[in-house]
Design a binder for these strands. Structure first.
Lengths: 154, 154
DNA sequence: CTGACTTTGACCTTTCCTGACCTTAATTAA
DNA sequence: TTAATTAAGGTCAGGAAAGGTCAAAGTCAG
């Protein structure tokens, strides 16, 4: 928490996020960079290091004229490090059994509805059946992670 | 929505389409261009990027005096049409963009719920990114097909 | 001094906007 | 009835306007 440029930009963006009732903001990379007198790629650095999924944020963007960067704060943070924990549990591969356990936990924690969990399980297992077995755990992890990202968003 | 001119024109046309019970509208290119203070070819750009067949639109036009541009939103008439077209659109490989377009279309056609679409969209947009690039389009096709089968069977 | 974090800049990709030039259809003049 | 004119819309390439990536250089606590 020094006075580094990255810290300043981070603080500024988080203030904007707090001020926005939906926890969603849109910025122009170039503008923000000018505002802080830094190079545009510095903004990317801040986004990567301060607003990653594990910390409860989603970032999407569009290039070209009228481009933008949209930062969303994920809600449902009943547990402070919920997202970090999910990310850690899933990592880059996860067995069917561990995935099942995770889903049960999420339901018990009332983070997922029962039928949402059922749907997620069905989607994931169905999707990976035709994939080579060696790939399945990795694909399951990717699928589950992304499903959870989008499900827990907003 | 960046508020680029293309976005504005797109929104305007889609509103017209929604207001029209048959999902068919006719415009004058020159007129529309004047209305938005842009060059006429900008209209073509919007039509190509926002209303292509893959996204469920048909555009036809006529030159010369009394010329026009007609935009139609396509609808699936039967379930058979739906699955046939899904199968065709997906085939054994599908790009991220095509997949996204298909999902948007399914939502617009009210075949998928918004919540379901969000979940599936998360998959097709992001899940594949950690897989080797050469495999992505094929894997995406497999995934999407299975996901849709599971989801649409209810 | 070293390793982690930060900052910068060169180069890349995507998306958008414009203008010059082309094609087609309807209308009018000969 | 033709031929010329006028009134549409179509194409394409180039430039501009974003944002993305990556690696090298800088900084700083320990």
């Amino acid at each position: 928490m020094g006075g580094s440029m990255a810290d300043l930009i981070e603080a500024y963006l988080k203030e904007l996020l707090r001020d926005n009732p939906h926890g969603i903001i849109e910025i122009r990379r170039r503008e923000l960079a000018d505002q802080f007198r830094c190079v545009p790629s510095q903004i990317n650095y801040v986004l990567e290091t301060r607003f990653p999924f594990e910390k409860g944020y989603l970032v999407e963007s569009r290039r070209g004229g009228g481009g933008y960067i949209r930062i969303m704060r994920l809600q449902w943070r009943t547990e402070r490090d919920l997202f970090a924990e999910i990310a850690e549990l899933i990592s880059d591969a996860i067995s069917a059994q561990r995935a099942e356990e995770l889903l049960i936990r999420l339901v018990e924690a009332r983070i997922l509805e029962e039928r949402e969990a059922i749907m997620l399980r069905g989607l994931v297992e169905q999707s990976i059946t035709s994939i080579e077995p060696e790939m399945q755990d990795r694909l399951r992890a990717t699928l589950l992670r992304n499903l959870l990202i989008v499900t827990l968003r907003r």
